[in-house]
Amino acid sequence: MADRAAREAATIELFERRARTSDPAEQRELLEWIVELNLEIARGIAHRFQRRGAESEDLEQVAFVGLMKAATNYRLDADTPFIGYAVPTIRGEVKRYFRDCAWTVRIPRRLQELQGLVAAKLPELEQALGREPSIVELAEHLGIDAAEIEQAMAARGCFRTLSLDWLADDNGWNLAEVVAGEEDLAVSQLEAVDMLQPVLEGLEARDRRILELRFIQGLSQSEIGAEIGISQMQVSRLLRRILDDLRNRLTPVPTAA
């Protein structure tokens, strides 16, 4: 938790330095430092979306794009922690990636047919050569331009839909069991902790104590009042004020279109 708070503080300091300079080169450098400092946030979000039919490296790259967008569009005057803006931005980018992956079922028909031809002829050529053929050898064997073979090989599997019975991990779980039909609550809770931590660090000691007693220890408002020496009505007002403040600070900053 201390590491998260330190990362958030360092990030804000870099944003403040970036806001003070008018040198485009320095602004770009500071933006790169901000992104580098927060790469673990993007990696963590990408990791939580793994085993859903996309390559890990692709998910990380998409998450990094989301992090860059968050760093570029974040505003210091919004009174929102950077992580509170970055997490939903990165998640949105990853979700758009999954949504837009539908384009892969619409690759050119020529490539689909060529993929079928390669799949049919490749075993014959491998057997004849005693090894996996090169693109050039495969192109010569099929009488097709090597560039087209490369395109077909690059798009291999793009239009294949995965069966819900496909084994998605080493524990024997299939895709239907791994991909939740609804929002993954565990993922949401982990991200909520990430977003709340730097905000909670800014609370006064009594406010943090009230939240701990209410939401960790499960005490009633009357019990909290007896614990810290105030009335139940005062506890109610304080809780409402604390939660409203947290909610306002965690609301993502709208960006200009």
Rank of each mutant, 00 (worst) to 15 (best):
A2L: 11
R4S: 03
A9I: 12
I12F: 02
L14H: 00
F15D: 02
F15R: 00
F15L: 03
S22N: 05
P24W: 12
E29W: 06
I34C: 00
L37N: 00
L39Y: 08
R43E: 15
A46R: 01
F49K: 03
Q50F: 09
R51A: 06
G53D: 11
E55N: 07
S56V: 14
S56H: 12
D58S: 06
D58F: 09
E60F: 13
V62F: 10
A63F: 13
G66A: 14
M68I: 05
K69G: 04
A71R: 07
A71H: 10
A71T: 11
A71S: 14
N73T: 05
N73A: 03
Y74S: 00
Y74C: 02
R75I: 05
T80Y: 08
F82C: 05
I83K: 08
I83W: 09
Y85G: 00
A86P: 01
A86M: 04
V87W: 13
V87H: 10
R91A: 08
E93D: 02
E93P: 01
V94G: 03
K95P: 03
K95V: 15
F98A: 02
R99N: 10
D100M: 13
D100W: 13
C101R: 14
A102E: 15
T104E: 05
V105I: 13
R106S: 04
R106W: 12
I107C: 03
R110M: 05
E113A: 12
L114D: 07
Q115K: 00
G116P: 01
A120Q: 14
K121M: 05
L122Q: 12
L125W: 08
E126L: 08
L129H: 11
R131G: 06
E132L: 04
P133Y: 12
V136P: 06
V136L: 15
L138R: 02
E140K: 15
H141P: 03
H141G: 04
L142R: 05
G143Y: 15
I144W: 12
D145S: 06
A147S: 12
Q151R: 13
M153I: 07
G157I: 15
C158K: 07
L164T: 10
L167N: 04
D169A: 05
D170G: 03
N171Q: 15
W173H: 03
N174P: 00
N174Y: 08
N174Q: 06
L175F: 07
E177F: 01
V179I: 14
E182G: 02
A186K: 14
V187K: 10
S188D: 12
L190N: 04
V193Q: 13
M195Y: 14
P198Q: 11
G202I: 10
G202D: 15
L203F: 11
L203M: 07
E204W: 11
E204A: 09
A205H: 15
A205E: 15
R206N: 08
R206S: 09
R209Q: 15
I210A: 05
L211A: 07
R214G: 00
Q217C: 02
S222N: 10
G225R: 00
A226Q: 12
E227N: 04
G229V: 07
I230N: 03
S231Y: 12
S231E: 12
Q232N: 05
Q232E: 09
M233F: 14
Q234L: 04
Q234S: 06
S236F: 09
R240N: 01
D245Q: 08
L246K: 01
R249I: 08
T251H: 10
P252S: 11
P252D: 04
V253G: 00
P254K: 07
P254H: 11
